[in-house]
Computed example of a mutant assay.
Amino acid sequence: MNRAIAPLLVALTFSTSLVTACPVSAQQDAPAAEPVSEPTPADDSEPSVINGVRYRCDDGKGFTADYLSNNTVRATFGTRVFVLPQVVSASGIRYSDGSVTLNSKGDEAFVEVGDKVLFKNCVAVQTLQGQTIEGLW
């Protein structure tokens, strides 16, 4: 017999005897291997717009607010855009990043920057779908 093959045959015979010597119940009780699941990709999709509203305010000012599915609002004031997280409000709904705050209740809103109200007496005049909502309330 070839000297290189002899140790392999001994090892194979020894491992086979271990398997056959193991009781059947122990073989059956061994936990099945868990299937390896593929990692799920992170959801990098943009939040969807639940409602979009155009507001008209005092002094001829106005802004738009896109209320998003991730409890934020994307408020656009001319060329400035702020994404504000929803925060606790005693009444109505409030979004703030600590500097810019949008407060809304019903079809009315106002915007504060710091401690100054910059957009006052704002009223929703149009929804995302382009429907005019003036006079409905």
Rank of each mutant, 00 (worst) to 15 (best):
A124E: 09
K61G: 09
D43R: 00
N103S: 15
L102H: 03
D44P: 03
Q129N: 03
A42M: 11
P41R: 11
T40V: 14
V125K: 04
E112P: 00
E34I: 08
T101Q: 10
P41W: 06
D97A: 05
Q131S: 09
D107C: 08
V73M: 01
V49Y: 07
P47A: 06
A124T: 10
F63C: 14
V117L: 08
D59P: 01
N121S: 07
E38P: 03
F82H: 10
K116Q: 15
T79K: 15
A65G: 06
D59A: 12
G60M: 03
V100Y: 08
S48Q: 09
T64V: 15
G60C: 02
V49F: 05
E134T: 13
S37H: 11
K61T: 10
G130F: 05
F82E: 08
L68W: 07
A109F: 03
S99N: 12
A65P: 04
F110P: 00
I133M: 11
A75D: 05
G52L: 03
D115P: 01
V113M: 08
S45Y: 00
L102S: 02
L68I: 14
V53A: 08
F77R: 07
S99L: 07
K105C: 09
R74H: 11
Q86V: 06
E38N: 12
D44C: 12
N70R: 11
R80E: 14
L128K: 11
V83D: 15
I50L: 11
K61N: 11
V36I: 13
L136A: 14
V88T: 15
D66C: 04
S96W: 00
Q129E: 09
